[in-house]
Design a protein around this nucleic acid. Structure first.
Lengths: 235, 235
DNA sequence: GGGATGTTACGGTCGCCACCGAAGCATCAG
DNA sequence: CTGATGCTTCGGTGGCGACCGTAACATCCC
């Protein structure tokens, strides 16, 4: 009863096109202002404000006041997981028509983008494939794990595995690696603490750079080199 | 664009109270008729029929005609995963009021119930704890796996691990064990192929029995014995 | 201080959708 | 065949909520 109600309330909030657009934009991992979110959702700021108030009321997004701006972001990784799960079901539907024309913007997203806190798109899939091929990780639809060789590898490229372990829930070494499936590649890629760490490292090392106001990222020349050299990824 | 639309469509379908009730009932794992679903959702058969048509149109549920009945069930494990993910977010909200009065029906659900294809409630948590304590499995919020000792243990109690491996996606041994969190215990329990296998075994051995038209199950005396003896579970 | 910008609050309009009653098919029993 | 049951389709009604215009409030810049 109360269980249904909560469930339906959350799903309904995510089910409005405007709110879905905002949540989708927030999957980019950055905190966005109310006006930015209004733009991406295609509604006026007043309307967006109302939506955001409801989303924060149920803890789907959180707010940080900063001067005259209010920065909104997803409230927790659980929200991102929920969105991924919904997208998995949604993308299972075969495309109803032929193929939609995809703009260059869409092409950039398919090449490489952020998925809340980790990398997705062809880059994300390539990195996952490379790590799996080298025996650093295992991954399937239902779960994943980092191998011993993977832990050594991570330490070698500058990821503090110990910190990841302590920050990752119960500290299980198996919690580091989570499969994430999304719309563009229809393939599994790296999520969880491992995916987040690699994404953070990539930004810190200048391997990737954010694109304008989008979830897309561009791979820098040094990044292209690093991914090939360190990870053995086929780009 | 098209991505948002699909996402919002699915979420909105799950977000209606009546449809949410039906989906919730179908989490029990059994196929239910349209009239049964109408009853649990508290609407007339005509209304339920419309809802079910929409749910089947987007492949959230599937139908099996059998005589003059139509049996509906969740279309895929992905749908169940999606619902669990939504419930995780929904249950994160601390109860707004004091505590709701819980009837005996609710008490039975909390004790032991079916969650699509595996066991949940106190029984599910106890089994998971026992397997983890014995080193047969590892489990965290982000992932899980079955250990070598776990595979041997499963073979010992009559679960064909080889069959599980082949039937479980890419055949990774790590895919057998998936964490599942839900509303009553706020604790992780066993999902995935392992959870389903143990659930099936429990029915086959007569350790548990379904309760009327509910997701709840009762533990038989032999089940109580078996869970304590074989699994070392604290009931 | 005054003016610009970002954000929220209020009121009113409009469209969509959940709902039911009545009627139409399909299936089974006799 | 006739009647009963399960389910769906069709039409019409009612209510909730998404949306915007206007306006108030907060913060920064000069």
């Amino acid at each position: 009863m109360t269980s249904h109600g909560q469930f339906a309330e959350i799903a309904a909030l995510a089910g409005d096109p405007a709110r879905a657009g905002m949540l989708h934009a927030l999957l980019g991992g950055r905190a966005l202002t109310a006006t930015e979110l209004a733009t991406v959702a295609g509604v006026t700021p007043q309307t967006a404000s109302g939506h955001l108030a409801r989303l924060t009321a149920v803890d789907l997004v959180s707010v940080m006041k900063q001067g005259r701006h209010r920065y909104y972001q997803l409230a927790s990784p659980a929200v991102a997981r929920m969105m991924e799960a919904i997208m998995e079901v949604a993308s299972d539907r075969q495309p109803p028509r032929k193929r939609l024309v995809v703009g260059p913007r869409d092409a950039a997203l398919r090449a490489a983008r952020i998925c809340y806190d980790h990398l997705a798109g062809r880059l994300g899939v390539a990195l996952a494939d490379a790590l799996i091929a080298d025996g650093h990780a295992e991954l399937s639809r239902e779960g994943g794990l980092v191998t011993d060789s993977g832990l050594r590898f991570l330490n070698g490229i500058g990821v503090d595995a110990a910190a990841m372990l302590s920050s990752s829930g119960k500290g299980s070494r198996r919690a580091l690696c989570r499969p994430c499936l999304d719309w563009s590649e229809r393939r599994i890629h790296l999520g969880g603490a491992l995916g987040a760490a690699i994404c953070r490292l990539s930004f810190d090392q200048g391997w990737i750079r954010r694109v304008d106001g989008s979830r897309a990222v561009t791979i820098t020349p040094s990044g292209r080199h690093a991914y090939r050299e360190h990870f053995g990824a086929q780009l």
